[in-house]
């Protein structure tokens, strides 16, 4: 393969004196689903946040399609074609579902909004049923779907997902992952940060395992799933 879409090279980042990322290197190619798994506090979310410059990267480089992200201000990054679906959903509670989706077009403007709304309603039929409702009235799973759809509204080239399964019932998690599979089959590049190792590794082409701010392991999803260390650490053997 040629140049990766997202290329992270030996990145360090810290919160004050606490070093959260230590020499993290990874890459994602166009059209891949890559997952990053690891325990709480391993630095997974920090890595996503550092793409947006908060916390700033103290050493190393991040390139997105040849552009250095480290030199861009945070609000410019979304318009490069990266959409982040934040951990804990963060929908606009007092806005209707449709308004939430329209907010998603912020980085690219409303040129394609009608077309894209239709696409999202096709992908998430429940959102169409609820499109006039305030987002605060949705269930957790529906809110997560809304957050994902909102991210997709900016027609990103890379979709970052931070723990989409957080606090959801197993059946809803399954639903979300099957939707992600559908999104990926359309050619979307997805970077998925997850605690739910089993689901994440089954979905992903490749995966990385993170611990204490370092990348410990890397490999294809099935490789990692059968890896004894990973099984012991995350799935109780």
């Amino acid at each position: 393969m040629n140049q990766p879409l997202l290329d992270i090279q030996e990145v360090d980042a810290s919160y004050g004196p606490i070093q959260a990322l230590n020499q993290v290197s990874m890459h994602i190619h166009q059209g891949e689903i890559v997952t990053l798994v690891g325990a709480n506090g391993a630095g997974k979310s920090t890595l996503l946040m550092s793409l947006f410059g908060n916390p700033g990267v103290t050493r190393g480089e991040i390139h997105f399609d040849g552009t250095a992200l480290t030199s861009q201000p945070g609000h410019k990054i979304a318009s490069l074609g990266i959409a982040l679906v934040p951990e804990g959903r963060h929908v606009f509670a007092q806005m209707s579902v449709e308004e939430n989706l329209i907010m998603g077009t912020t980085p690219i403007g409303t040129k394609h909004v009608h077309e894209d709304l239709e696409k999202m309603y096709e992908l998430f039929p429940i959102l169409e049923e609820r499109k006039q409702q305030n987002a605060s009235t949705l269930s957790g799973g529906e809110q997560q779907m809304l957050a994902i759809a909102r991210g997709l509204m900016s027609r990103p080239r890379l979709l970052l997902l931070d723990e989409p399964s957080l606090g959801l019932a197993p059946i809803v998690v399954q639903q979300i992952f099957s939707i992600l599979k559908e999104v990926a089959s359309g050619g979307m590049t997805i970077f998925l940060v997850e605690q739910n190792v089993h689901h994440a590794l089954k979905l992903a082409n490749r995966g990385y395992v993170m611990a204490n701010g370092r990348i410990k392991l890397g490999g294809t999803g099935t490789e990692l799933l059968s890896n004894r260390e990973v099984r012991e650490a995350y799935m109780g053997g």
Partner: peptide, 21 residues
């Protein structure tokens, strides 16, 4: 005005959508 309201609702979401907070 929409941006103000979005900021009131959720700052993290705003920033993830590329609004200059």
């Amino acid at each position: 005005g929409r941006a103000w309201e979005a900021l009131r609702e959720d700052e993290i979401a705003c920033r993830s959508l590329g609004l200059n907070h």
